[in-house]
């Protein structure tokens, strides 16, 4: 079954070493895996195991100490800062563990911001932003500034911001860490639905086994190493997925 899918993200022998004083911290200690197009993967592990580090490196936010990251055929670790920015603008949506909304903007403006980088007109991007704000259940907080919202609300704005640009890959770092269990389920179902519909690849970091169950595959990571990969069977969705006879999409990221 996996042979039929095209690989989206390939990670080979990835290391990240932080120097703290004289000692070295191996945040990632030789990681290998492949994620396929249209897949929903969860990276699971205890606090401090290196989940965020791995995700940041996949999105090109940080350079690995050693190893390869190939996304859609390109070596991420070899791209320049400019090319990385362009790569993220075209293909990546990123959901932060700590929201990272722009403090000087309200909810709608925050969601519309990445669209403006793609040259979308003001009218079109505001419409789209409002649509996604409604999807995450924040129609009443549209005009709230970042510091005028609760942690969970800010987190949902962050999710809407990542989804609104229709990226090929979504990286999510504890996207539901600040939400109650009911909202968590709603948001996860929403993400699952959007990702399935648009055949997007979703990589989500979590320490919660219940949340990880939503994913197709779970990478269990401890002390910077993958020690177990679990597959989950979501029956109805699988039928859908097999109907997609995906043609390989162009994943070039030229600068500009």
């Amino acid at each position: 079954m996996t042979e039929k899918k095209s690989p989206m993200i390939q990670v080979k022998n990835l290391y990240k070493v932080y120097k703290v004083g004289n000692s070295k911290v191996y945040a990632l200690n030789g990681v290998d895996f492949t994620i396929y197009k249209g897949e929903f993967c969860a990276i699971v592990g205890p606090s401090g195991s290196g989940k965020s580090t791995l995700l940041n490196m996949l999105a090109g936010l940080e350079k690995p100490s050693k190893g390869e990251i190939v996304i859609g055929g390109s070596h991420i670790e070899k791209l320049s800062e400019n090319q990385l920015v362009s790569f993220r603008r075209k293909h990546v949506g990123f959901i932060f563990q700590s929201y990272n909304l722009l403090q000087t903007m309200n909810a709608v403006e925050n969601v519309a911001l990445p669209l403006s980088f793609r040259g979308v007109t003001k009218k079109a991007r505001n419409e789209k932003a409002k649509e996604y704000i409604k999807l995450v259940g924040l129609e009443k907080q549209m005009k709230h500034m970042a510091n005028e919202m609760s942690g969970g609300q800010q987190q949902r704005v962050g999710i809407a911001r990542a989804l609104a640009v229709d990226p090929k890959i979504i990286f999510a770092d504890e996207p539901t860490g600040n939400l109650d269990s009911k909202t968590t389920r709603e948001i996860l179902n929403l993400m699952q639905k959007i990702v399935r519909e648009q055949n997007q690849t979703l990589v989500m970091v979590t320490h919660d086994n219940y949340i990880a169950k939503f994913a197709d595959r779970q990478f269990h990571i401890v002390d910077g190493k993958i020690f177990k990969i679990e597959e989950q069977h979501h029956e109805e969705q699988h039928h859908e997925e097999q109907q997609h006879e995906d043609t390989k999409e162009d994943m070039g990221y030229e600068e500009g």
Binding site: A59, R88, R89, L102, F117, R161
Partner: peptide
């Protein structure tokens, strides 16, 4: 803020 803009793909 500059860091966030870069993550969101704002051209340098």
């Amino acid at each position: 803020e500059i860091g966030i803009l870069k993550v969101l793909g704002c051209d340098m």
